[in-house]
Structure formats: C-alpha cells, structure tokens
C-alpha cells in the first residue's frame, strides 16, 4: 500500500475543514480595522468583567448535538440548500412520474395514422421532449433513464459502502489480514479503473447486473482504504485512550468517537459515487459495453443523442445531457458541503 498517498477522500474532506477554519479565523481576527470600525466597537466589551460564582459554575456543559450542528452547518450554505431541494424534487419526480396521469410508457412506439413511425418529432405539446429515432416518447425515456441510472448508482453506492466499510474494518482491526488485503488492494488499485470496468463488462454479458458488479469491483477500494486508515489513526488518539481508560465500551467508542469522523467521509463518498457511476455508465455505453439499448438509461440516451448533435434533432442530446449534468453537479456540491458540515471539527 502506498504509504504517502493520502486518501483522496480525506483530502476532499480536509478542504472543507480548512475552509471553515479559515472563515472562522477571518471572522474572529480581522486583519486591519478602519477607524470607523474601531469607533463602532462596543466599549463595554473592553471593560473588565466582575467575578460571578454562578457563571463560573456554568462551564463544562454544552447542549451540543452532532447531527443538529451538522444540519445547521449544511443549511447555512445557500447553493447546497437550493441544490438539495432541487435534487430531492427531481428524485421525487422520477419516482412518481410513471404514476402521474397522461404519462406514456417509455418503451411504447408511436405510429402515425398511416402506419409510419413517429420518428424524431421535435418537442411539442404532445411530446414534451419530442420522440426519438424509433418513435418513443423522449420525456418518458428521460425519466425512466434517470430512474435506471439512479437505481444503479444507489445500489453501487450502497454496496461500495457495505463492502468498503466491512473490509476496511477487518483490514484495520485484524492484523493477520493486513498483509493479504494490502496485496489485494495493490493488485486492483494498480490497474486503471477503466480497464477493470471494461474487462469485467466484457467477460460478463453486458447488462445492468454486469454494470453493477463491475463498478462494485472497483468502487469499494477507496472506502476500504479510508476506513482502515481512520481506524488505525483514530483508534489510538488520546481522547479515545482516555475514553477507554474511563471504561467506555468499544461499541460506544466506535459510535460516539469514531463514527462522526467517518460519517463525513462516508457521506462524501456516497455522494461522489453517484455521479461517478453515472459517468462510468456513459463511458461504458460509449465503448459499446453498456446496457441493452431498449432499457432507457442516461448512458444510452446520451450516446443515442450524441449522434444527433449536428442535426436539428439535437434536443435528443440536450435533455438527457442536462439531466446528467444537473445530477452530477448537485451531488458533487451537496456531497462536498455535507462532508464539511458533518465534520465535528467544523462545528466549533
């Protein structure tokens, strides 16, 4: 295992932390105050406080709640707040869309009365996003594709987490496994990610299951490495030792002391997994190793639309590309913001 490479994820998290720290620093220590600002300062703040017994007793307890602070910190970021709401609306819409009235099934082919297929109709009142080259409703296909891709992304993100955390904990705690897992990690990590994706997709038959499997094969690595490093690092920190000395159970240490440190990264990892899964899907589809074309997915839609880019049918590219971009950008920004917010060091 590479000794010096910090986990990519850690570094992403640390940026957030640094941001917060710097902000705090700036707020508390303004570099140079203008005379007006000096004049505006409340003189009472510079008077000596009198000793008060009751106030002295108040120290030592705060009503700190980890999750509340996390959400408050997150909520303070306007862009992230907006994106989160928009994303939730989008996800909710993709889920309920097929149950709304007047929606068309994504695989249905529409014909004109004379028996010819309604191909490449531009967006209209009837077909909001137009139709594709086989006369299917693009509106329905975009949402169905979003559903498929999000589903894949979710499955991959969850299994990345499950596999990654399990292996990471084993790796960190069971010393006998360390050498072996390090070797496995090296083997997989040494091959470029795209090559693994391609090889697995090729050897297994292309399809949803293959895609999920191949992405899971590469996705857990980062998570496992991070968890292992965290466990090694945090386990022996002074406050944990102190906790242990005071008789706190291992489980409680894990949940109260270790987990908050990791939640930020787990969240970040999950949030970043989703856009990366979607872009991997687009990539695999481009290589011809994607999902069957009759299943709408964002990868398939973008790939189909790409061929139309230079024609007036380029709406077939624009709609799915917009959805991909939106999902990716929002997950990326939300993930980063949440990672910052969930880092207890930022709750000061």
């Amino acid at each position: 295992m590479s000794l010096f490479r910090k986990g990519a994820v850690m570094e992403k998290a640390s940026e957030g932390m640094a941001d917060q720290l710097e902000k705090a620093l700036r707020d508390s220590l303004p570099d140079d105050l203008t005379p007006e600002q000096v004049a505006a300062l409340d003189p009472s703040r510079f008077e000596m406080a009198e000793y008060d017994d009751t106030l002295a007793e108040k120290t030592g307890y705060s009503s700190y709640s980890y999750w509340r602070s996390t959400f408050r910190a997150f909520w303070n970021n306007k862009v992230a707040r907006f994106l989160l709401i928009a994303l939730l609306v989008l996800i909710a819409f993709t889920i309920i869309q097929p149950h709304l009235p007047g929606q068309r099934p994504p695989a249905q082919i529409y014909d004109f009365d004379d028996g010819s297929v309604m191909r490449n109709l531009p967006p209209s009142h009837d077909f909001w996003f137009g139709t594709n080259a086989v006369g299917q409703d693009l509106w329905a296909r975009v949402w169905s594709g979003t559903r498929t891709s999000l589903l894949i992304a979710l499955i991959v993100a969850i299994s990345d987490n499950v596999i990654g955390i399990t292996i990471g904990i084993l790796w960190g705690y069971v010393r006998k496994l360390d050498a072996f897992l390090t070797e496995v990690y090296n083997i997989i990590d040494n091959i470029p990610r795209t090559i693994i994706l391609i090889l697995i997709s090729y050897i297994l038959r292309p399809g949803m299951a293959t895609m999920i499997i191949s992405m899971c094969c590469v996705g857990w690595l980062g998570m496992a490495r991070f968890i292992r490093n965290q466990i090694l690092m945090i386990r022996d920190r002074d406050y944990n030792l102190a906790s242990r000395c005071l008789g706190t159970s291992t489980g409680k240490i894990m949940i109260k002391n270790l987990l908050p440190y990791m939640v930020s990264v787990i969240m970040l990892q999950t949030a970043l997994a989703i856009p990366s899964v979607i872009s991997d899907e687009v990539f695999l589809t481009y290589c011809g190793l994607g999902m069957p074309k009759n299943i709408a997915s964002l990868g398939n839609l973008v790939e189909e639309g790409r061929k139309m880019m230079m024609t007036s049918s380029r709406y077939q590219l624009i709609f799915p590309a917009l959805v991909v971009t939106f999902i990716t950008v929002s997950f990326y920004l939300i993930g980063n913001t949440f990672a910052d917010a969930s880092d207890p060091r930022n709750h000061v």
């Binding site: 695989a107 249905q108 082919i109 297929v117 080259a133 086989v134 090729y202 038959r205 292309p206 399809g207 011809g288 190793l289 999902m291 069957p292 074309k293 009759n294």
Partner: peptide
C-alpha cells in the same frame, strides 16, 4: 435494435398479446 422493437410491436399488436409474447434482449456486441 430498433428494428426488433418494431417487430415486437407490430406482431404483438396484430396477433395479440395472448398469442405471442416477444421479448427483445440485447446480445453481446462481441
């Protein structure tokens, strides 16, 4: 792929879903 989707639709509509049920799968590209 598109041609097979049209076959599925055309035959099933003509002969009825209670008679034949065509399912289109993607084969491997290699």
């Amino acid at each position: 792929d598109n041609s097979f989707q049209l076959i599925e639709k055309q035959l099933e509509e003509l002969l009825g879903n209670d008679y034949i049920d065509i399912t289109v799968y993607a084969g491997p590209s290699t």
